[in-house]
């Protein structure tokens, strides 16, 4: 069944939009946006300084991602600046009859900067064909918390792993060297089989890449993070070759994933105060 929103959205022409942001340290220790440029479907909320980070909410006023869309997001955090980028709602990649949609994201953090990128999950619909390539570049001495989340589909409608093609890649560089490269690529059948094999048929996936040199391997926070594992939830944390950590979450539903991410942010905020910011929805 096609939703009204999706049916409306399918009728609109494809969009080639971009969002470019530069956050810099301003007066009195506040961060400010010193360069911004955007074009539909991107729109941003009025930036809000919460005392620790500058919150920017990226809004897509259309129903979601449609065939032919070309999206580009670039955000750069300068020395001494602290930026939190969120989205107010899930990203939906709709059914695409023949073509595909693509999104390229480049996030950069200079030494002394802090970036948290915390979007809502991606929901690929039946027959979606979507390519998303993300590159996170952190200079030595910069810090970042990059989060991404993937839903198996519209589980409430009984639609799981039904996309035609999804390619979601992530490259993380620290000090100019690659420290993490991963790529999910294919239709939903391989993940469906893997989810079944691991007895997590409605798996929602979350990946948190924490780039910081403040957290040591023996920090007690890791035991608390590992203790989140169980009860149908998979959680693991491991050190990258240099510069940071990767935390994986597999949750048995969207709310369970949201709760786990909230737990992770609360636990890690003691070492990384930027994570104490309330992900308020403007």
């Amino acid at each position: 069944m096609t939703t009204l929103a999706a049916a409306d959205a399918v009728a609109r022409p494809s969009l080639h939009g971009h969002l470019h942001l530069v956050a810099s340290a301003g007066s009195e220790g506040r961060t400010q946006i010193t360069r911004q440029s955007f074009r539909a479907p991107f729109h941003i909320s009025k930036p809000y300084w919460d005392g620790a980070v500058l919150q920017v909410q990226v809004v897509n006023p259309t129903a979601g991602i449609l065939e032919g869309d070309r999206l580009e997001l670039e955000a750069r955090v300068e020395p001494g600046a602290a930026l939190l980028v969120t989205t107010p709602a899930a990203a939906r990649a709709f059914m695409m009859r023949s073509g595909a949609a693509a999104c390229r994201q480049v996030l950069g953090v200079a030494a002394g900067g802090w970036l948290e990128y915390q979007p809502e999950p991606l929901y690929p619909h039946r027959d979606a064909d979507y390519v998303q390539a993300t590159r996170l570049e952190v200079d030595v001495g910069g810090e970042a918390a990059y989060f991404d989340a993937l839903a198996p589909g519209r589980v409430g409608r009984g639609e799981r792993w039904a996309w035609r093609r999804l390619r979601v890649s992530l490259d993380v560089h620290y000090g100019g060297e690659p420290v993490l490269r991963e790529c999910l690529d294919g239709d939903g059948s391989a993940l469906a089989a893997a989810a079944e094999m691991h007895r997590t048929p409605d798996a929602f996936f979350g990946t948190l890449v924490l780039m910081t040199e403040r957290l040591r391997a023996d920090d007690p926070v890791w035991e608390a993070v590992r203790a989140l594992h169980g009860g149908g939830r998979w959680v693991g944390a491991s050190a990258l070759r240099r510069g940071g950590w990767v935390v994986r979450v597999i949750a048995p539903g969207g709310q369970a994933l949201r709760d786990t991410v909230a737990d992770l942010r609360r636990l890690l905020a003691a070492a990384l105060p930027g994570l104490a910011s309330d992900l308020r929805k403007l």
Binding site: R226, G236, S238, I250
Partner: peptide, 20 residues
Amino acid sequence: PDDLGAFNPWWDIAAARHER
């Protein structure tokens, strides 16, 4: 080069938990 990489979070988590 664009095709490079894998995605198996179950394996990653099991390997991460094996550390401890």
